[in-house]
Design a binder for these strands. Structure first.
Lengths: 203, 203
DNA sequence: CCTAACTCGTACATGGATGTTCAACTTCGG
DNA sequence: CCGAAGTTGAACATCCATGTACGAGTTAGG
């Protein structure tokens, strides 16, 4: 109607709608099975296979778009988290939220890892990792997190454990609640300073 | 020469030799790239593709055999480890050894996980997991390991961290020595009782 | 030595997924 | 209402790894 804001995008309205549908479908399908076929994604999106190829010339392109989308969704959530204050508390908050996300989307990640060049994955992840890294740094300076291991390793520990817990829930070995608790308890313990003479109450 | 012990196997000597070569080649190839093609494995083994199929009718059969082989090799090593005495010390020994193995063979595992039915994986792994589980149980009774999380989860934590560390070394982020130290320190910390009022020296 | 067991290469059958091309049909959007 | 942008299914072209079939050549081993 109104001479469209010109920033909308070159595309026509229905095209944009389809792209959305495709991304949503892809996301859902990938969660159920990282090896879904393009054909199936198209069908789920209620769109012709050819149409899909029209927007995403190659499987990798599609995966990349989905990955980017999920990643941005995650950032939107995580950016609202308060990471100031007592590091251990902030860590608890951050991990709890992050775990929800990992638990939801780990299958997408798995798919992406299989078929996207590693730097691609890295670049999408960086912001998440940086957030945690910053918190760790702060906690170390405050003397409440251990400093005898590389910062990078501590980051890895947290993400690894989240993935593991997610796997355990999908395998049915742990309820979501138990899994979250387990991750939290484990990471907190793993981050505690090596020779900890404190009383365990954190101060 | 001597009327062969009759327990040798129905096969002819050269056949047995080839089977060995194939398994060895497969193991090596899979370590370099979990998606190696059968053809390449055959070539590496210095054997015709057809010959390979003669012994392992299907890719899954081959993977299974390789997996079994590696697993048995691992068991041979791990069975020699002293798991009595102070649980924390025994754990250190067990993890240190296990990590070496995981670090060497994680690629094989990855390949197997992709293409073998999960129960197969399980059955091969069980003995390793059981070993650790037993030690954990003992440590808990002795009051030196935490009891507020499922035993199963603690096992997962250890193996997960070993895999993560292995990944970090292959990525070049950690030297083998640093990785081993990191795993050890992290697992020990993670296993420590939740509200730990001890002096950190273990007794 | 002589035979059955093994191996080899080449060639072929299969199957499944990814992309492409085309010509007709719909829908936007001005 | 008209033209351009978008959509569609069907058919086709590739590609690539797996697995088979065969006939001829080797080798083990009694």
């Amino acid at each position: 109607m109104a001479p469209r804001p010109a920033g909308t995008d070159g595309r026509r309205a229905d095209a944009r709608r389809n792209i959305d549908a495709i991304l949503a479908a892809a996301q859902q399908c990938l969660i159920e099975n990282p090896d879904v076929t393009i054909a199936e994604i198209a069908k789920t999106a209620g769109v012709g296979r050819v149409t899909l190829y029209g927007h995403f010339p190659t499987r990798a392109d599609l995966l990349d778009a989905v990955f980017r989308r999920v990643s941005e969704e995650a950032n939107a959530v995580l950016d609202t988290i308060e990471t100031d204050g007592e590091p251990a508390v902030a860590l608890t908050r951050l991990i709890a939220e992050s775990w929800q996300i990992v638990n939801q989307f780990r299958a997408v990640l798995a798919a992406a890892e299989q078929e996207l060049p590693p730097e691609r994955i890295r670049s999408h992840h960086d912001r998440h990792l940086a957030r945690l890294a910053a918190l760790i740094r702060r906690g170390r300076q405050a003397g409440v997190f251990r400093t005898d291991l590389p910062e990078q390793w501590l980051v890895t520990v947290a993400y690894t454990l989240m993935h593991a817990a997610a796997a355990e829930t999908t395998a049915g070995n742990l309820t979501e609640a138990d899994a979250q608790r387990a991750v939290l308890a484990t990471v907190l313990a793993a981050y505690r300073p090596a020779a900890d003479y404190s009383d365990g109450n954190g101060r």
